[in-house]
Amino acid sequence: MVWKIFLFLLLAFVSVAGISFPIVENPQTWYQFPLIPGLEENAKIIFFHVPTAWLTVIGFLISTIYSIKYLRKKNLDDDTKSYVAAQLGLIFCILATVTGAVWAKFAWGSYWSWDPRQTSIFALMLIYGAWFALRSSIESEEKKAALSAVYSILAFVTVPFFVFIMPRIMDGLHPGSADDKFTPSGGPVVNFKMNSNMLLIFFLSLIAFTILFYWMWNIGYRSLLIKEKLNKKIIRG
């Protein structure tokens, strides 16, 4: 109960701060963001776009964790949890791709330019798509759970290549790329030209979206578990 109100206030604060705090050249007070040359007001996307990409990976992580759990204990409830996490992950993956593409048209000049991070979010979308295609092709519940669990683990071990390695060794437009002028040698994404209050609100936004994801996932799998329970009851008569 308390954490729901906390989430409400946190995300409300993040949207107020992220949208309305002014961007000025020399920030004086705590509610002013620094000016990033070439981006100006466009820089505010970081509070809403990056969390969706983050949730894509988190959704995949949770899905894989419950896949491993399923392979160990063979409990079909774990498969349901993994399924719901992947479903939410796919939704946020599409959101990240679309918001990124719309933004890129105005900041970089084209909707899609095969920047390494665009490639990696596209690969994640392909993985999710392949995963759901595999699930729909198998009839028996246990077989479906086992094979999709194996595939999601197999796909998960390739994710570090997309998320961490490729963007750093290939040339790109996102911060942290191999040819980034601001952070030579391809440092982590966050320390590009952000001052401390921008960073703080960015991390608050990540936390708020993660809690939101947890809540949606929780509601999703609880309703599916109830559905399965009712199905069993009807079969037993």
Binding site: K4, F8, A12, S15, I19, N218, I219
Partner: peptide, 24 residues
């Protein structure tokens, strides 16, 4: 204005999720 609209949307989504949780 954008900020106020986003806030209203967020209040709507939150109320929906909250009620769904209670119903479940």
């Amino acid at each position: 204005i954008v900020m106020i609209i986003v806030l209203i949307v967020w209040i709507g989504i939150f109320t929906f999720l909250y009620n769904l949780d209670k119903r479940l």
